[in-house]
């Protein structure tokens, strides 16, 4: 009881200190922004508030992007843009010089074209499989099944893992002396060269990336499915529609905007595939799983044989392809609307 006045006094003192600090901060902000507003006027204030974000965007995105152009049009092995001689379109010419574009071995930079064709193959199969499996999973998880919450978590869980972790886990399972081959040999079967056979490696890269990222797209589609009013299905059922008719006439048309989002996102992500494949196969065997971003990485960063100009030119070509793909999809969506 006797201690209470002391505690109260201490509490008041602490409170006073915090109040003073708070007042100080507010006063400082008032001083800064008040002065700024007096100088540039009210109309200029929104720019002041977006300035921090603009700075971050400018330094970490816009500036490197512009720098990429400098590297793409200059040559030499110097990292400093100031020490690089002007090369014009030489880097692009090197990348695009081909006797027959359908045959990478006839191209000057055959690895670039191998990477391009590998990426196209990967994108086509991975995106198709990803969208299809995500849709099927979302449809199943949208039904009133037992332990629905548990299964939603199960499918989403791989998304939480780092792609490198995913790649390493699967590498340990599938490498020559890995878990799966251990089981196979234990059962008396021959080992399967999962990682050193080109066909197996290509297939597994697709399957593993689908496994790793499917949960994310499933979640988006699930949200799309749940936004479809239930009374539409009830009305269709009363009219005698069978499940397929409900799916094709109600679900798919109403889900289409969400599908386009999933398609755009998965397409962009597939073109940019790198980390999971780099850790899983390293682009091999040979160049069987060498994709365009790894090609850029190897010339720009990893190899002692660095050719920044070539890497920058390849990245600009890839950016151009991504812009075209996105525009095509946006135009298609607009026409559909």
């Amino acid at each position: 009881m006797l201690a209470q006045p002391g505690i109260k006094r201490a509490r008041n003192a602490v409170s006073g200190v915090f109040t003073s600090i708070y007042d100080l901060i507010i006063s400082l902000l008032d001083l800064i922004f008040g002065t700024t507003q007096r100088i540039i006027g009210v109309r200029g204030m929104p720019y002041v508030f977006v300035l921090p974000n603009l700075l971050i965007f400018g330094i970490f995105i816009l500036f490197p992007m512009l720098l990429n152009f400098v590297y793409a049009f200059t040559g030499g092995s110097s990292f400093s843009p100031f020490d690089r001689p002007w090369a014009g379109t030489v880097n692009f010419d090197r990348l695009l010089a081909c006797e027959n574009y359908l045959e990478p071995r006839t191209c000057g930079e055959d690895l670039f074209w191998r990477a391009v064709y590998n990426t196209i193959g990967y994108v086509v199969f991975q995106v198709a499989l990803m969208v299809l499996l995500s849709l099927i999973t979302a449809l199943i998880l949208n039904r009133n099944i037992k332990a629905r919450g548990f299964f939603r978590s199960v499918f989403f869980y791989p998304v939480l893992l780092s792609p490198i972790v995913v790649a390493l886990i699967w590498k340990w399972i599938l490498q020559e002396n890995g878990l799966l081959n251990g089981i196979l040999t234990g059962l008396g079967y021959d080992k399967i060269p999962f990682l050193v056979n080109a066909q197996w490696a290509r297939l597994l890269v697709i399957l593993i990336s689908v496994w790793a990222f499917m949960g994310f797209y499933t979640l988006i589609l699930l949200a799309g499915l749940q936004s479809i009013p239930a009374d539409l299905y009830e009305a269709a059922a009363i009219d005698g529609a069978n499940p397929w008719q409900s799916f094709s006439k109600i679900t798919m048309p109403l889900l289409m905007p969400t599908m386009v989002v999933v398609l755009v996102l998965s397409l962009i992500r597939a073109v940019q595939v790198f980390d999971i494949v780099f850790a899983f196969t390293g682009g091999g065997p040979g160049t069987a799983t060498l994709y365009i971003v790894q090609y850029i990485y190897s010339y720009g960063f990893s190899s002692p044989n660095k050719q920044f100009g070539l890497a920058a030119a390849a990245s600009l070509l890839m950016a151009g392809a991504l812009v075209i793909l996105t525009l095509v999809q946006l135009i298609a969506r607009r026409e559909e609307n």
Partner: peptide, 11 residues
């Protein structure tokens, strides 16, 4: 020969 030496993931 162990094929993963030349055909595996490590550069």
């Amino acid at each position: 020969t162990p094929k993963e030496v030349w055909l595996g993931a490590e550069p």
